[in-house]
Design a protein around this nucleic acid. Sequence first.
DNA 1: GCCAACGTTGGC
DNA 2: GCCAACGTTGGC
Length: 153
Amino acid sequence: MQYWLFKTEPDAFSIDDLAARPNQTEHWDGIRNYQARNFLRDEVKQGDKVFIYHSSCKEVGIAGLAEVVKEAYPDHTQFDPESHYYDPKSSPENPRWVMVDVTFIEKFPDVLALKKIKTMPEISEVGLVKKGHRLSIMPVNEQEFSALLAASR
DNA sequence: GCCAACGTTGGC
DNA sequence: GCCAACGTTGGC
């Protein structure tokens, strides 16, 4: 099993929104970055644990935990001309973008602030605190996962 | 809203 | 295949 961090803007979709979905499950659509896509397509597996990270908001940081319940399948929004995520260069025969389904596990009592994460000695290798913190799907190793989870609860 | 850092595009 | 221009992300 592997660990991940998925970014979301809570104004658009938050940990509370995930918890409020039917079966507390939702598809993670709209990933339009090749590196993130490759993670989703090739490495994100059923049962993997996922930190839900809130970005571009008041309380930036890790807000909760989710689990992958369905592995990569075509992201339908890429075929919808009305969608913000429409990609005219993609086709159903040869889909360019994929998504996975995640289900809610828990919301942390407080958001684990990015500021605090940056002070944690265990977390020097997470993409969040290194250069290029722009990836919306990033791996988290087991040691980092444990440290972040312990700091969140 | 600023701006640095990064990804993507497209002309050559 | 290079690289400048442009667009986007995301913390502050």
